[in-house]
Amino acid sequence: MIAVNVVGFKNSGKTTVAVRLARALAQRGRRVAGAKFAHCRFDRENADTGKLAEVCRVVAGLSPEETMLLWPRKRYLPDLLPLLDCDTLVVEGGKELGWLPRIVLAREDADLAPLGSDLALAVFGAAGTGNEPTDEDIERAADMVIERGFALPGLDCGDCGRENCRELAADIVAGRAAPGDCRSVGGGLRITVGGKPIGLNHFTQDLVAGTLRGLLSTLKGYSPGPVTIEFDG
């Protein structure tokens, strides 16, 4: 999966840019999903789903036109990725995310550092290409996302030799590293759920691989070598 994070302060045009970017990516044949971060509860006052969420751990809403899944507690974006039928993800908001490259909407130069310009594939605003990106800007940004977008697992495990995923992400954006330098998705054990890789630090990889190796060694026909296990979760 490739992904990008559209960030900016309030009323900077994040939603408009995210929608325009997602549309441009979809027109290029990408299967695009969107995610939105908010600092308040999503509006569901007096809705049946809201009433159910008061007493249920998880609520699913289904209609002939759409499907919704509501967790009345915090979940992390990597937990949801296996549910998203996409190859490209556009995330609106979430300035605290350090494992995605960014499109930064800066109203003035002082906004750049707080908005994480070290992760920026493109900057629009005071230090970029004008207060509102043109259609041409969006088209160039879409091409850049396809070429350079990525999503790290966000484990902050340090297996890549850096303190956290943000440092690796900044190095990838700067051209000093590549997404494949993330050891948690490129080690000897690889697990995918819904086609999306699950990040595993070296301790978890060793634990799971050792457990599976021990179980498999009791089976007839097993011999050391590459192993493929597939099952429906």
Rank of each mutant, 00 (worst) to 15 (best):
G8S: 12
F9Q: 12
S12Q: 10
S12H: 08
G13P: 00
G13Y: 00
G13S: 00
T15Y: 09
T15E: 11
T15W: 11
A18G: 08
A18T: 11
R20F: 00
L21I: 02
R23F: 00
A24T: 08
A26L: 11
G29L: 06
R30A: 07
R30N: 02
V32M: 03
V32H: 03
V32P: 04
G34P: 04
G34V: 05
G34D: 04
A38V: 14
A38H: 14
H39R: 08
C40N: 14
C40P: 03
R41Y: 13
R41I: 08
F42Q: 08
F42L: 07
F42R: 03
D43S: 03
D43L: 01
D43R: 03
D43I: 01
N46M: 06
A47T: 14
A47G: 08
A47V: 05
D48L: 05
G50I: 09
G50L: 08
K51G: 06
A53P: 13
E54N: 02
E54G: 05
C56Y: 10
C56S: 15
R57K: 13
V58D: 03
A60G: 06
G61L: 02
G61H: 00
G61I: 01
G61F: 00
L62P: 02
E65H: 01
E65Q: 01
E66G: 01
T67G: 09
T67W: 05
L69D: 04
L70P: 00
W71V: 05
W71C: 03
R75A: 01
Y76K: 02
Y76W: 02
L77V: 04
L77A: 03
D79V: 11
P82L: 09
L83E: 15
L84I: 04
L84K: 05
D85R: 15
D85M: 09
T88M: 09
T88V: 08
E92S: 09
E92M: 09
E92G: 12
E96L: 09
L97P: 10
G98L: 04
G98D: 06
L100C: 06
P101T: 07
P101L: 07
I103E: 04
L105D: 10
A106W: 11
R107F: 08
R107G: 15
R107I: 07
E108Y: 07
D109V: 13
